[in-house]
Write a protein that binds this DNA or RNA. Structure first.
Lengths: 211, 211
DNA sequence: TAAATTCTGTACCGTACGGTACGGTACATA
DNA sequence: TATGTACCGTACCGTACGGTACAGAATTTA
């Protein structure tokens, strides 16, 4: 086998996690160890050897998916209002694209479904909810806050707690979309819809926090 | 037994549903038929007789809880800006109080966890997610829209699609609070915190949509 | 080519849960 | 007092799943 660094995943292991994610998207209730083994054409024993137990497999799948959606950080040099607006609007588009994707809905549902478990109750010891939060909200937030603080330093935005400003922007972008999707409502957002929503949220944000 | 109207619940049945909800709050994974029967001091056979199957019991519990949080509609007579602001702020406070409550988090988690099921796959035939949506987002929304439209008619708010205006207000109020709670993040919102958040959201809403 | 390692496929075990059956009890009605 | 009804408690059944064991194939290493 192609050996990998500790914490890294071999090609084959990634195939297994891809199969897990596929299964998760089509029906979360069908993600059993035997189903994953069949879909990935591997044995259950291998699953347990690689991932410890079911919780470890799911955690690995969530982390693996998160590692695929890393986006490039933006540079805050020579910031103009148009440039900041473009950064915000781009961020909003990305966020909406991700949150409305099948894979995001499925992963959030999975994480929410067992978010009540205390750490250590599952094999991996870490809660899926906190993994999703760490790689989602708590990862994108600070990245955008850099841009917001640069905007304040350039007097494009009024002085304000950047965390609070980010949260309001988040609300303006997401509104009730995510919770409705999670609850099973079917909202179709086209590419142009997402772009329009991102633009609206950005305009409203400047109205509230701009100079 | 105290007979009840069709669709109504007897005292004893409400006790059973209260026990179900209690169990749900303390640990959703423990809501098994035997656990409910023990907690409510009734027999499993009675549960099946009254609610059909597990899905029916959960659906009944969700509906029962929803029936307890009905709030009074507001009157839109002689609307002033202060009065509208008070309505919006009150609505926001109520919304935040509900969404941050243990019972709401537990019910939303439950509904989300199985929102992928097609109608008819559970005994009751109706999806818990849609029940929550109907009694939550799709019930409170139209009620507030009445106030928003009255505000537009009174020229307190700019002419605008009331559905869209409501959704932005919702976003300003809730921001990232609900998704973080659902994912297991612990956010403590005191009574005064909620009041302050409601006030902020209302002020921001007037900035965006006021005249 | 021979030994060793890794993996697949399947059979198996224990458990937990949904759902059913049934005996026993309390109570209401006649 | 006799009969019926509603309910409790529990035993039971079938199934599905997580996890383990093992035999044999495939692949690697020497």
């Amino acid at each position: 086998m192609l050996d990998a660094q500790p914490g890294e995943l071999t090609e084959r292991q990634q195939q297994v996690l891809d199969a897990t994610l596929e299964l998760l998207i089509e029906n979360a209730a069908n993600v059993t160890m035997i189903a994953v083994a069949r879909k990935a054409s591997c044995s259950k024993e291998t699953l347990y050897k690689w991932f410890g137990d079911r919780g470890g497999l799911l955690a690995a799948a969530v982390r693996y998916q998160a590692s695929k959606v890393k986006v490039a950080p933006f540079e805050a040099e020579g910031l103009t209002r148009d440039k900041l607006a473009s950064i915000l609007s781009g961020f909003a588009s990305d966020l909406l694209s991700i949150l409305t994707s099948d894979i995001s809905v499925a992963l959030n549902r999975l994480a929410i479904a067992q978010a009540h478990l205390h750490a250590g109750e599952n094999g991996n010891g870490e809660n899926l909810g906190s993994i999703v939060l760490q790689n989602g909200r708590f990862s994108t937030g600070p990245r955008l806050k850099v841009a917001l603080e640069a905007g304040m330093a350039s007097s494009l935005l009024r002085q304000h707690d950047s965390e609070d400003a980010f949260r309001s922007f988040y609300g303006l972008v997401v509104r009730d979309i995510q919770i409705r999707l999670l609850l099973g409502d079917t909202i179709a957002l086209s590419k142009t819809d997402i772009h329009a929503e991102a633009q609206r949220a950005t305009d409203q944000f400047f109205t509230l926090y701009g100079t």
